[in-house]
């Protein structure tokens, strides 16, 4: 089904929760992301139970400091890397 993630139309499997969507989008540090679903903030505790539906609008908002210690971090092969560097789509 189609949803919009950060203003980009995206095809995802049906029935995904926010947690599953974060995993599917390879966001391995969900602690660094705030999520808004159809204009409303999703509480972090509700990530595993909130499901995304057809034509929903999802915003991933990242912590940003001053150029260090924040942003789109994930672990790849045991190393910290920043998302966005290798074809990351969010």
């Amino acid at each position: 089904m189609k949803i919009r993630i950060n203003d980009l139309e995206t095809e995802i499997a049906e029935g995904l929760t926010i947690s599953a969507l974060l995993a599917e989008r390879k966001v391995k540090m969900p602690e660094m992301v705030s999520v808004q679903l159809n204009g409303a903030i999703v509480e972090r505790e509700a990530f595993p139970t909130t499901r995304v539906g057809e034509n929903d609008t999802v915003e991933f908002m990242y912590f940003m400091g001053g150029g260090m210690r924040g942003g789109r971090w994930e672990v790849e092969g045991g190393r910290w890397t920043l998302a966005g560097g290798k074809g990351e789509r969010v």
Binding site: M29, E31, M68, R69, G70, W80, L82
Partner: peptide, 10 residues
């Protein structure tokens, strides 16, 4: 959740 600094930058 806080990463190392080596790959940050701005």
């Amino acid at each position: 959740a806080v990463p190392s600094c080596s790959q940050a930058g701005v």
